[in-house]
C-alpha cells in the first residue's frame, strides 16, 4: 500500500521496470520507443515506471520481469559478502521496490532474498552507526540504499546528540539580549 504523501514512496515508484505486453495496445506508442506506429504490439518488451507496471499487471495487460539488480549475478555477489555490495548505484530503493514487485512477479524467492540481504548488511550497519560516529565513512555511505541510510543516520544522530550532551559545558544559555550593556541615561 503506497503511502500517499511519502516522498520516498513517490520516487520509488518512478523506477523503471521491464514488462512484456500480453495484449496489443492502441494509441500508447509513446511507451515503446521502438514502435513505428502509435501502437504497442503484444509481446513487446517495454520499460515502464513501477506504478504503471503494477496497474497494468492488475488489469492483466502485462507480465512483469524482475530488474537486473534482483538477478542471479547480484544474488551471488550478495551471498559472498553482503556488506560490500554497492546497492545504491543499482537502485536506491532496493528494498521498497522489491517489496512492491514481489507480489506481481513470478519469482517466489524475491522476498526471502530481500530479507537475507537485509540480515547480512544489518550487522555492518549496526557497528558503523554507533561506533564510527567520529571517523566518518563516506565510502561506506555510498553503498547504502535509502532505507539503510535512514537507519544509519538515526543511530548516528542519537550518538552525536549524546556525545554533545556529555561534553557540553554550561547548560543554560544566556539570551543574547541579556548580555548587552544597558545604555547610560546621562
Amino acid at each position: 500500500m503506497a503511502r500517499y504523501y511519502d516522498f520516498d514512496d513517490i520516487l520509488m515508484e518512478e523506477e523503471p521496470v521491464s514488462v512484456v505486453f500480453r495484449v496489443a495496445a492502441d494509441g500508447v506508442g509513446l511507451l515503446d520507443p521502438s514502435s513505428e506506429d502509435n501502437n504497442v504490439e503484444a509481446g513487446a518488451k517495454v520499460d515502464l515506471p513501477a506504478w504503471l507496471a503494477q496497474e497494468l499487471f492488475q488489469r492483466q495487460a502485462v507480465l512483469v520481469n524482475l530488474p537486473t539488480f534482483y538477478g542471479q549475478k547480484l544474488r551471488k555477489e550478495i551471498q559472498a559478502d553482503p556488506g560490500c555490495v554497492d546497492l545504491r548505484s543499482r537502485c536506491p530503493y532496493f528494498y521498497e521496490l522489491g517489496c512492491k514487485l514481489s507480489p506481481i512477479t513470478s519469482d517466489p524467492t524475491l522476498g526471502a532474498f530481500l530479507l537475507s540481504t537485509l540480515r547480512g548488511r544489518y550487522k555492518d550497519l549496526l557497528c558503523k552507526s554507533h561506533s564510527a560516529a567520529v571517523a566518518f565513512t563516506p565510502q561506506y555511505m555510498n553503498l547504502l540504499t535509502k532505507e539503510e541510510t535512514q537507519m544509519l543516520e538515526a543511530g548516528r544522530n542519537s550518538m552525536k546528540a549524546f556525545k554533545k550532551w556529555r561534553l557540553q559545558g554550561a547548560r543554560i544559555e544566556r539570551a543574547a539580549v541579556l548580555g548587552r550593556k544597558r545604555r547610560q541615561n546621562t
Binding site: 544489518y122 537507519m151 543511530g155 544522530n157 542519537s158
Partner: peptide
C-alpha cells in the same frame, strides 16, 4: 540512545 536505531531496524 539506542531507541532511534532499534526502532528503524
Amino acid at each position: 540512545l539506542i531507541r532511534p536505531f532499534i526502532v528503524k531496524a
